[in-house]
Computed example of a mutant assay.
Amino acid sequence: MSDFNLVDKVEGITKEEFKEQYLSAQRPVIFKDLTKNWLARKKWTFDFFRKQYGEWEIPMYDDSYHDPGNGYMKPTTYKRFGDYLDIIQHKPTSLRFHNFQIMKRAPELANDYKTPTIMDGFMKFALMFFGGQGSALNLHYDIDCSHVFLSHFQTQKVVYLYPPDQSEFLYKLPFTNHSHVDVLDPDLERYPAFKHAKGFKAVIEHGETLFIPKLWWHYVYYSKGGFSLALRANDSIKTKVQGASNLLRLFAFDSGMNYLAGQRWKRYKDNKAIQNAQRAMMNLGVG
């Protein structure tokens, strides 16, 4: 596994300092106090979600999320939300509940957090992510090109990050925003270029917020069962246009080709990613 630099943790930083040191520099950082005035910091517990929304039927995702075929990027099963919360609170599981659009399903939860003022361009769009101990969200970057502010609650989450210029060493799959490399247990015989990737490690505790710059790769690991809120910001018309283009050009095309070609499409992407990584190693004079 590649070596990691630890992501900075800051407190009391100003908007100007954030822009100079992290936003303009495109560097991740963890805010210790961005949520200090949020109701959610104390209110959002396993018991709260269980009591308020435990009867929901929710989609479940696991490690088969990117397997080719009819189940590509689709739920593995459905569970009662309260039952799922019981599982992730008390024992490991690979099942995740992600991309939960709280503004649609439970708009009242928006009263429990505040739009940060640390930068301009925040969207009303918000997502929540739930996972059990040992589960992970595969290595990817956010397709809409937004900056992400990920606030974690109750437990601990670990995020491994890589800047965009490391994409070829990560075996980026063409026409997608994903990689098959398992950051915590990489197959270096199949993915030898990965050992040259230069990354960062962020350990997020309860109430802390990780800033993930646009187009940065991240592998999200639940060291303990818990949940997070992701807010997004976009400070550029150019990246808004790029994000919209990605949604059409990448997501729609990739999903269509998977439907039409299945395993053949997967093999093409895998082989192309390997070729690109081999070229990157040659440019480094290694491999």
Rank of each mutant, 00 (worst) to 15 (best):
P107R: 13
E108H: 04
A110E: 07
N111S: 08
N111W: 07
N111G: 05
D112Y: 00
D112L: 00
Y113Q: 08
T115W: 02
D120N: 04
F122I: 15
F122D: 11
M123K: 15
K124T: 15
L127P: 06
M128P: 09
M128K: 03
F130H: 05
G131H: 05
G131I: 07
G132R: 04
G132Q: 03
G134F: 01
G134A: 01
G134M: 01
S135T: 09
S135V: 09
N138M: 14
N138E: 09
L139Y: 11
D142E: 10
H147K: 07
H147G: 08
L150W: 10
F153V: 05
Q154V: 14
T155I: 11
V158Q: 08
Y160G: 09
P163V: 05
D165Q: 15
Q166D: 02
Q166F: 07
S167A: 08
S167C: 02
E168G: 12
F169G: 05
L170Y: 07
K172P: 05
K172V: 08
L173W: 03
L173P: 09
P174I: 03
H180A: 13
V181S: 08
D182G: 11
P186D: 04
P186E: 04
D187K: 00
E189H: 06
Y191T: 12
P192F: 00
P192E: 00
P192A: 01
F194M: 03
K195V: 10
K195R: 12
K198T: 06
G199R: 04
F200A: 09
F200N: 07
V203H: 10
I204W: 04
E205R: 15
H206S: 05
T209P: 07
T209F: 01
F211T: 05
P213F: 13
K214Y: 04
Y219S: 07
V220G: 10
V220T: 14
Y222I: 05
S223L: 04
K224Q: 12
G226S: 12
G226W: 02
S228K: 02
L229P: 08
L231I: 12
R232S: 12
R232D: 05
A233G: 15
K238S: 14
V241A: 15
Q242C: 02
G243V: 01
A244I: 13
N246F: 00
L248Q: 10
R249A: 09
